[in-house]
Computed example of a mutant assay.
Amino acid sequence: MTSMLDELAIDKSKKQCSSCQDNNESKNARSWCSICEEAYCEHCEKYHKSLKVLSKHKLIYLQEIQTGNCDIQIFEVLSCEEHQDHLVEVYCTDHSKPCCTLCVTFSHRQCKNVISIKKAASGSKQSTKTSGLSERLNDHLIDLSEVIDNRNQNLADVKNSR
């Protein structure tokens, strides 16, 4: 579910380069860094790869995301809500909250049900809530497609009646 939402977060057709936008320029992006959560044009992608600190980051081509050939999760790394410089590593089922190690040490030390984030994510994929949500999203997608088709037909009818 997270991966589906992440893919929707990337405007697949006209995503602009994040670095260029910061410099008030407008260039179409061709890749996405799953660690930085930024889109890059060909020029900025080259510099992203050349910096030693960023060289190990996995860049995904937007075309792969569009065609569904992307085999890794986008936004694999999430920052903790309370400690932005720490990564989410565990999930407190007592509070239904993702946490970093600092949170567990200070805020959730009395909690009895703290599991790894990977275990929590794998469990959510098989949950009935997730499958129900997926079905509802598919139903809405069908409804939206019908509305779009209807609007396009109405537009064509108006053009033909002139």
Rank of each mutant, 00 (worst) to 15 (best):
H57F: 03
P98N: 09
S79A: 12
I65F: 09
I72D: 10
G68K: 01
K52C: 01
S34E: 10
K46G: 01
E64A: 12
L51G: 00
N69G: 13
C92P: 08
T93E: 13
Y40I: 01
Y61G: 04
L51F: 12
L51Y: 15
H57Y: 08
Q73M: 12
E81T: 12
I60P: 00
V104D: 06
H43N: 06
E76K: 15
Q66A: 11
H95L: 06
E89S: 15
E81V: 09
D85Q: 08
Q73G: 11
Q84Y: 06
S79V: 06
K46I: 04
E38G: 00
P98G: 00
K46E: 09
E38P: 00
D85P: 01
K56F: 07
S31K: 02
L51I: 10
C92L: 10
L59H: 05
D71A: 10
S34R: 12
L78P: 00
L78A: 11
N28Q: 11
H86I: 02
C41H: 03
V77H: 11
S55H: 10
Y91W: 15
C44E: 03
S55G: 01
I35K: 15
L78V: 07
H95G: 00
Y61C: 03
S34T: 13
E76V: 05
Y40H: 06
R30G: 09
H83G: 03
P98C: 01
E82W: 07
K49Q: 08
C100Q: 05
K52I: 06
I74H: 05
D94G: 06
L102T: 15
H48L: 04
I60M: 02
L54C: 10
E37W: 09
R30Y: 11
E37F: 04
V53L: 11
C36V: 01
K46S: 05
V90Q: 14
T93G: 02
F75C: 09
H86Y: 09
E76D: 13
I65C: 05
E37M: 07
D71G: 10
G68P: 04
H95M: 05
C99F: 04
H83P: 02
V104T: 07
E81Y: 12
D85C: 06
D71I: 14
H83Y: 01
K46W: 08
S50G: 02
D85I: 02
H57K: 03
F75K: 15
C41E: 04
H95Y: 08
E81W: 11
E42C: 08
E45D: 14
K46R: 12
V88L: 13
K52Y: 07
K46A: 04
H95D: 14
S50E: 10
I65P: 05
I35T: 13
E37L: 09
C99H: 03
A29E: 01
